[in-house]
Amino acid sequence: MNLSEARHAFVTGGASGIGLGIVDALAKRGIPVTIADIDADTLASVVGTRGNSVRGAVLDTRDREGWQRVKAEAEAAFGPVDILVNNAGIAPNGKPFTEMDPESFDRIVAINLVGIYNGVWAFAGDMAARGRGHIVNTSSQAGLMTTVPGVGAYSVAKFGVTALSEALRTELAPQGVGVTALFPGYVQTNLAANTQKVGGDIRKYSSVVMTSDVTPVHVGEMVAEAIERDDSYIVTHTGVWTGVEKRFDAIKAACDFREQAA
């Protein structure tokens, strides 16, 4: 959508990291922004330095009543939400499936997959009815391929986000609403520390995290531009294509095998 027509953006997990990069990129373009985040202290300090057209709302994206409440408050303050950025998420737990507590799996699915659906549930119907708007869902490069050890549960959730985004894009396009899936690679954020704050275990995962020269500011600009162009996908790091392609090649080989066997 044309960002000059966007009246209000709602960004989850927006008090730090990629979410904050997106908040700043949208605010810079004159769009009032509601930042939703689970971390009230960080939220207060971020909102306090950003002027009157950025407001904060404490939200655990798992909390459906919370979604309804903060949505009503946000729209009372800044009007209808035209841009929803479902960005809140926690890090991989570093565990193989054979050593994974069900609680850890459940937490990752609840925040990283169902939390994003909850945002869609809260806002997509309204956008479709108004015939305008854009939704950005933060997936991951782990939502396209599964080769990094310890990322199993995280990949499950992020593959789900990828699918939801693709399905939603097809469904909402005729109603004038755009949908973009964001596939970040390693970005300089505090994802690991924040994951521990909500009870997640990142000890093993932290040991494999690579360094990155991509910052949330870069990603914020990529997202703003992608909304303008209504891109289906945003890729931050191109190096993983080889792995993604290898995966599609394996699926194609399986299709070819069945074709020949038939």
Partner: peptide, 15 residues
């Protein structure tokens, strides 16, 4: 929603 679950199953199986 079905595709979201099934994409997840595909990813889980690969890992």
């Amino acid at each position: 929603a079905y595709a979201a679950a099934k994409f997840g199953v595909t990813a889980m199986s690969e890992t």
